[in-house]
Amino acid sequence: MGGRESKPISLSYEEAVKRVSEGELSRLKDAYKRTATLNGAITKQAFIREVLGEGVPQQLAELIFVACGGTAKGITFKDLLCSLVLLTRGIREEKIRFIFGVYANEAGTHVTKSDMLRQLQTTEGGYAPEILHKCFGQNERVTYEEFKDWLINYPDATTVTRWLLAEPCHASLCNDLETPTFYQTLAGVTHLEEKDILELEKRYWYLKGSSPTGKLDPDTLVPLISPPLPPLLAKGVFSAFDENRDNHIDFKEMACGISAACRGPLTERQKFCFKIFDRDRDGKLSKEELTAMVQALLLLSYEEQEDK
């Protein structure tokens, strides 16, 4: 496949739809909407986490993402459905053709030994399976029929073939992506509606994806606060969100923090403000913390008057 962003999926969207029930299709569409970013696609991180699962090696997961039609912008619903149906309900011939497409040249007519070895450098940690010589022999390339005959005899030849031809399949049409319990739970313990939480999650994953560290850390969050806050105050705001103090904000912390700061009753908002200045989390403001609070509030008041 080289560096191309094309997909070797041998299953059409129309055929994929025929292999799922109306209920399954509806649940998948709802799940996709909940997980998709603002541009209407599922990111590579979400695809690997929600569709493939944590048990799939990262290099293999990235290869499968591209093979399923994923690009830098993400993966569309049609490509996702075709991929899931092929992986979970495809016949062996369809899966073998998919694997052939993973390793094949741009035109999809043959697999060259050099291209396949290059792919194996990624998925096999630089190790070339000895059984590979059974596929190519003295030749530099093989056709689909030759590749298929080899794979039928040696389905465990590579990590890719072992994963895709495993029974039962590692992927599933019914996974955690379809279960809205998490969103309903958050809606029940916050002052946000379920639709607010779904929209907030899209923005959360977008921000995480935009972060150089892949996390919602101070360097990512603080510049988003408007109007800009003094450094000391900005650090306190981040700390108020970061409940477990691991220096990054997970989605639950983000939802609960926004709920308390923006949607909660006056008492809850006051508690959130208190947490901004309670640096050591002891439930009290020390003399130093109180001094820092007064200085920060005076600075904000001064800047507000300057703006006027």
Results as ranks from 00 to 15, higher is better:
Thr143Cys: 02
Gln305Phe: 06
Lys308Leu: 05
Phe274Ser: 08
Glu124Gln: 00
Glu106Trp: 00
Glu124Arg: 04
Ser259Tyr: 02
Glu146Ile: 10
Trp150Thr: 07
Gly69Lys: 06
Lys148Arg: 11
Ala260Asp: 15
Arg203Ile: 12
Asp156Tyr: 06
Gly137Lys: 13
Glu94Met: 09
Gly40Ser: 03
Asp278Phe: 01
Arg203His: 09
Thr43Met: 09
Thr35His: 01
Pro180Ile: 15
Lys284Gln: 14
Pro180Phe: 15
Arg141Met: 12
Lys215Arg: 00
Phe47Val: 02
Arg245Ser: 02
Gly283Cys: 06
Ala187Ser: 15
Gly74Cys: 14
Phe251Cys: 09
Arg19Pro: 04
Ile152Cys: 11
Gly53Glu: 01
Asn244Asp: 02
Glu14Met: 08
Ala260Asn: 14
His191Ile: 03
Glu306Met: 14
Val160Arg: 11
Tyr144Gly: 11
Thr213Gly: 01
Thr159Pro: 00
Gly125Cys: 08
Cys256Asp: 00
Ser83Ala: 15
Cys174Ala: 14
Thr123Pro: 04
Val85Ala: 08
Phe100Tyr: 10
Arg279Phe: 11
Ile152Glu: 10
Val66Trp: 01
Glu194Ala: 01
Arg34Trp: 06
His170Ser: 15
Gly125Val: 03
Thr123Gly: 03
Leu52Arg: 04
Leu11Cys: 04
Thr267Phe: 13
Val20Asn: 00
Arg245Lys: 07
Thr43Trp: 05
Phe277Asp: 10
Cys135Val: 14
Arg89Leu: 08
Val222Arg: 08
Leu300Pro: 10
Leu164Trp: 11
Glu178Val: 14
Ser226Arg: 14
Cys135Ile: 12
Leu266Ser: 10
Leu198Arg: 08
Tyr127Pro: 00
Lys271Asp: 13
Gly257Met: 04
Lys148Ile: 09
Pro265Phe: 03
Leu60Met: 13
Val66Asp: 04
Leu63Asp: 07
Gln295Met: 14
Leu285Arg: 00
Phe251Arg: 10
His110Asp: 14
Gln305His: 13
Gln58Tyr: 13
Lys7Asp: 07
Asp196Cys: 10
Arg19Thr: 05
Lys78Tyr: 02
Glu62Val: 09
Val237Trp: 02
Ala107Ser: 15
Leu86Trp: 03
Gly69Arg: 06
Pro230Gly: 01
Tyr13Arg: 08
Lys195Phe: 12
Arg97Pro: 08
Ile9Lys: 05
Val102Tyr: 03
Pro168Arg: 07
Ser114Asn: 12
Leu224Met: 07
Ile258Ala: 05
Ile197Ala: 05
Ile225Tyr: 02
Arg97Asp: 08
Met1Asn: 09
Leu63Phe: 13
Ser211Tyr: 02
Ala261Gly: 04
Leu63Glu: 03
Ile131Ala: 12
Val111Cys: 15
Leu173Met: 10
Leu221Thr: 04
Ser26Phe: 06
Phe241His: 06
Gly23Val: 03
Val111Ala: 09
Leu297Glu: 05
Gln295Ser: 14
Leu221Phe: 04
Ile152Thr: 09
Gly3Leu: 15
Gln119Pro: 00
Glu50Lys: 05
Glu22Ile: 12
Phe274Gly: 11
Thr35Ile: 05
Ile197Pro: 07
Ile276Gln: 15
Leu117Glu: 15
Ser210Met: 11
Gln121Gly: 13
Ser21Asn: 01
Leu11Lys: 04
Arg34Cys: 07
Glu303Ala: 03
Ile152Asp: 08
Leu165Thr: 05
Ala171Glu: 11
Pro168Ile: 00
His191Lys: 09
Gln121Cys: 02
Leu11Trp: 07
Asn105Gln: 07
Asp79Leu: 12
